[in-house]
Computed example of a mutant assay.
Amino acid sequence: MAYRYVAAVLACGTASLALAQDRAPDGRRYLSQPLVTSIYTADPSAHVFNGKIYIYPSHDVPTETPDDDLGNQYAMHDYRVLKMDKIGAPVTVGPVALDVRQVPWASQQMWAPDAAYKNGTYYLYFPARDKTKDKNGLGKFMVGVATSKSPMGPFKAEPKPIAGAFSMDPAVFTDSDGKSYLYFGGIWGGQLQRWKNGTFDPNGSDTDLGQDTKPALTGKVARLNPDMKSLAETPHDAVILDEAGKPVLGGDHDKRFFEASWMFKRGGHYYYTYSTGDTHFLNYATGTSPYGPFTYRGHIMNPVQGWTTHHSIIETGGKWWLFYADTQLSGKNHLRNVKLTELTFNADGTIKTIDPLVK
């Protein structure tokens, strides 16, 4: 039960944010319990480095800013890495790995990050608003990179964002041939809709969700150079096709891309996974190339408690695992807690849909 879980955490000397309730407000039971309760965490990017599991989440912080479609209530300003020896083992919360004040080009809102490793160096990829101002008085979201010799940090940021990358939600996938790819993008607060022509329009629309009969905006993908700090090419559209082989339309909110790209490979197939945003599904589409196109296959997870759904998927210990977040501890959309659950596949490679809240 949730109360016993938190009691065990407290017995280990970790302060708890709140007692986790067994059931959601609608009476359903939470499938999983928070990994940590000493801080609020979300958007977990999990990796196995040197046989250990490291999770790179955003670090939610309290704010009096009301919820809005631009995401101003998500006021995160630093990163802290979570570590565990294996699934089910105690979780260590690391010290501050990178703060926005240590990033020369950034002004605020360090949202969902990711990480990668190559040749003795760990790379932290992160979005943040730069120091320009748009019609709302906000900077544009760019993607930066920082490096460390330790997976827990501290990380040192490059002086400028990655040229050619933009918006938010960076995710790095390294293929079996050693080539690495950067996926990124998110609409509404992530501003992807303002980059339609390859350059930022500060006066552009704050949403494209009115383009119901046109192909939906897509996430972006570009191969990284060997230095892991720069793009080797102009970004491509990560196109998602429907069952008829046509691009998913903007009006298909249950299928379309919104944010939170994550790529993994299984059985020779590339699984492009993402969030639908306003309909709160985690989806997946498959293809034969890391560039796509990807054919929509279904839902990975039904809606969690809370507005945003951002995830990662790894294989470890002979099983596949989904990392996600909800608002069990706080009941507030901007104060979330990271969780995990096992991911299972059918014989044909399709994924069994997970219900984060069960009767």
Rank of each mutant, 00 (worst) to 15 (best):
L217Q: 03
Y270P: 00
T121Y: 04
G185K: 07
G250L: 02
P215T: 05
I53F: 04
S107H: 14
Q191T: 06
A112I: 06
V93I: 10
D69K: 07
V36P: 01
A260Q: 08
T279I: 02
A116T: 05
L329H: 12
D43Q: 06
F141N: 15
D252K: 11
R256F: 13
Y324W: 03
F264K: 05
A171W: 04
Y296D: 09
G317R: 15
I300T: 08
I240A: 02
T308P: 04
T37W: 03
Q73Y: 05
K319G: 05
P66S: 05
T353C: 09
Y30S: 08
D175Y: 14
H334W: 08
D254W: 13
F126H: 09
K220G: 00
P293F: 11
V36D: 01
V304D: 11
P44K: 06
A97C: 14
V239K: 05
L17A: 03
Y54M: 08
G331V: 14
Y56W: 14
S167N: 02
L224D: 05
K359G: 13
F141M: 15
A260T: 09
V338M: 04
Y181R: 06
G277D: 10
L329N: 12
A8P: 01
Y74T: 06
I313Q: 07
L249P: 03
H334E: 11
D201T: 04
N333L: 12
A20F: 10
T316Q: 10
K83H: 02
R223P: 00
Y40K: 07
F184D: 09
K246C: 10
D355S: 13
L209C: 12
G198C: 02
Y296H: 14
N225G: 03
K131D: 07
L10Q: 15
I313C: 03
P293N: 13
H253L: 15
A2Q: 14
K359C: 07
G51I: 01
M301A: 13
Y271T: 07
A97E: 12
G292R: 10
W307E: 08
M110D: 11
W262R: 13
L124V: 12
V61D: 13
Q109D: 11
A146Y: 14
Y271V: 02
G190Y: 12
Q102F: 06
G287E: 02
G198N: 06
T279Q: 07
G144L: 05
K332A: 12
Q211F: 13
M228F: 14
F141V: 06
G186K: 15
A285N: 08
I53K: 01
H77T: 07
A216F: 09
T350S: 07
D326Y: 12
V36G: 04
P113K: 07
K149W: 01
V221N: 00
P44W: 08
T199A: 00
S58T: 12
I313S: 08
T65Q: 10
S38Q: 14
R223F: 06
I55H: 13
